Computed example of a mutant assay.
Amino acid sequence: MEMISIYENVATITDQMLSAARNGDWDLLSKLESDCTSQVQILRIREVEQELSPDLRSRKIQIIRKILADDKEIRNLTEPWMAQLANVMRSSESHRKLTRTYGSS
C-alpha cells in the first residue's frame, strides 16, 4: 500500500506540474519537476517485485496512465516554449558574434 501512496504522490505532483505549465509558471514547474524526480527515485529504490492484489494492480495502472497523460500534455505545452527560448538564445549569440566581429554601431 505504501508504494501506491508514492505513486499517488507522483500523480499529484504531475497534476501540479501540468497546472504550472498551463499557467506558464516555469519556476514552479522546475521546482515540481525536482520534487517529482525525488519521488520517482524513492519508487526505484523501494519498489521490488511484489504481488499486488488485482484491485491494487488496477489502481497502480490507473495512476501510471494518468502520470503519462499529464507528462504528454506538459511536453506539448513546454516544447514550443523551449523552442522559442532556443531561438532567442541563438539570436542573442548571433548578435554577440556580430558585435565582436564588426563592433557595435
Rank of each mutant, 00 (worst) to 15 (best):
T101I: 06
R65E: 15
A21H: 15
Q39M: 15
R90L: 10
E51R: 11
D15M: 04
I61S: 04
P80A: 00
M89N: 13
S5C: 11
N87R: 04
D15S: 10
Q41I: 00
D35N: 11
C36I: 03
W81C: 10
A11R: 07
Y7T: 00
K97D: 14
D25S: 08
I64A: 14
N9P: 09
A11Q: 06
I67S: 08
T14W: 00
S5D: 14
E49K: 14
L32S: 11
L18A: 09
V40L: 14
D35G: 02
Y102E: 08
T99N: 05
T99R: 09
R22P: 13
V10D: 08
C36H: 06
A83R: 07
R59E: 08
I42G: 01
I63H: 02
Q50D: 07
S53H: 11
W81R: 14
Y7C: 00
S91Y: 05
K60I: 04
L28C: 06
R22D: 14
I6K: 06
S53V: 10
S34N: 10
T101R: 12
A83P: 00
I63E: 05
M3T: 07
L29S: 03
L18S: 10
R96Y: 07
R22V: 01
W26F: 13
L29E: 03
R59T: 07
L52E: 10
L28K: 10
E33W: 05
R90F: 15
Y102M: 13
T37L: 14
E49W: 04
R46K: 09
D55K: 10
T99P: 05
R100Y: 01
L29M: 05
L18C: 12
T78C: 12
